[in-house]
């Protein structure tokens, strides 16, 4: 494990980021309508002659009349120099939007993961230790039920029940953690719970199956043969080993979570990256979408790298050349 491995992994970042940005760039331009057409047609108040003129004007203003390849190279060049450009829909630097939104979504994702892990890993352990007993069945049914309800439904139901049962709704005004942790958590805990319920299911299942697998391996048998108590076997030997794939999985999900929060952010009106991204897509705000997807991909790759490093650190058997 050393600098060479890290360097090799980091070398893979640029091609992946470029690939991801090309994909989203092309995809966005396949979606019918650019911002010029949408702005003009959705208003629909001016005569059709004026409309055509305005569309041409807006496109020229935003550089949308250039060939797509030129637009991409221009965008990439600027991005590499750290300039994400101007948002079409907010008429201010995309960097300012990112600075506002990214930390909020990161916080929500982190909170979700924290809740999910704290709840899912112990359940998975219980389920494995008591495999094929009623406890195991209850845990498995509970965790699958989380997978079976779409997040939008759990979210809407949560809001409804909070109002119905307590006549209470999380604060509508977003307060950042640094200003008031309590107010901030009052707001974020619910979307985090709704999401954690969903993603905890695979974590529970993975913990269970990994633990079952490890428990049957030789060193555990040895430990057991040495007369160590069941508890010690499970917790001291089996668990630490079985958690490795779980860590990988969590890292991988954590990256995806950032994209999945579109829906909870809308439902719980959290002004994060997800809701901004959905809005930017619907308004064809190309620079904002591209920058956000770029950042999300970067976070995803970094997280995966971190997970691999943690993995290597946890498991001395793994040697990277």
């Amino acid at each position: 494990m050393g600098g060479r491995y890290l360097a090799r992994r980091l070398l893979l970042f640029p091609p992946t980021l470029v690939g991801a940005s090309i994909l989203i760039f092309v995809l966005l331009r396949l979606v019918p309508g650019d911002i010029a057409e949408i702005l003009v047609y959705q208003t629909g108040s001016e005569s059709s002659v004026v409309q055509q003129k305005q569309i041409r004007q807006l496109r020229a203003e935003l550089g949308l009349d250039r060939p797509v390849a030129v637009q991409y190279v221009d965008w990439l060049g600027k991005t590499l120099r750290g300039d994400f450009g101007q948002s079409y829909s907010q008429k201010r630097p995309v960097a300012a939007i990112l600075k506002e939104r990214v930390p909020r979504s990161l916080e929500l994702a982190l909170l979700t993961l924290l809740i999910a892990v704290l709840w899912a890993v112990p359940l998975g352990v219980v389920s494995a230790v008591r495999a094929n007993t009623w406890i195991d069945y209850v845990v498995r049914v509970l965790s699958i039920s989380g997978l079976s309800l779409p997040i939008f439904f759990t979210g809407v139901l949560t809001l409804y029940l909070l109002v119905r049962l307590f006549g209470w709704l999380p604060p509508l005004e977003f307060v950042s953690f640094t200003v008031s942790p309590v107010e901030n958590l009052k707001q974020l805990i619910w979307p985090a719970l709704a999401q954690a319920y969903y993603i905890s299911a695979p974590i529970t299942r993975l913990t269970r199956s990994q633990l079952l697998e490890v428990i049957r391996q030789d060193y555990v048998r040895t430990a057991r043969a040495k007369g160590l108590g069941e508890r010690a076997v499970v917790y001291r030997h089996a668990l630490s080993n079985s958690l490795l794939p779980v860590v990988t999985f969590i890292g991988w999900w954590g990256g995806r979570l950032l994209g999945g929060i579109v829906i909870v952010e809308i439902i719980f009106s959290i002004p994060g990256m997800g809701s901004a991204l959905a809005q930017a897509v619907s308004q064809r705000d190309y620079p904002t979408v591209q920058a956000m997807v770029f950042v999300m991909a970067l976070i995803f790759l970094t997280l995966n790298l971190l997970v691999d490093l943690v993995y290597a650190w946890l498991d001395p058997r793994i040697k990277y050349g």
């Binding site: 809407v156 809001l159 409804y160 909070l162 109002v163 006549g167 209470w168 709704l169 509508l172 005004e173 809308i266 439902i267 719980f268 009106s269 002004p271 809701s275």
Partner: peptide, 18 residues
């Protein structure tokens, strides 16, 4: 004025007296 995008969210805010 709060910016509330989803229908269920708007209704929940109204019912909760916000």
């Amino acid at each position: 004025q709060y910016i509330l995008v989803g229908g269920p969210t708007q209704l929940a805010a109204a019912k909760a007296g916000r």
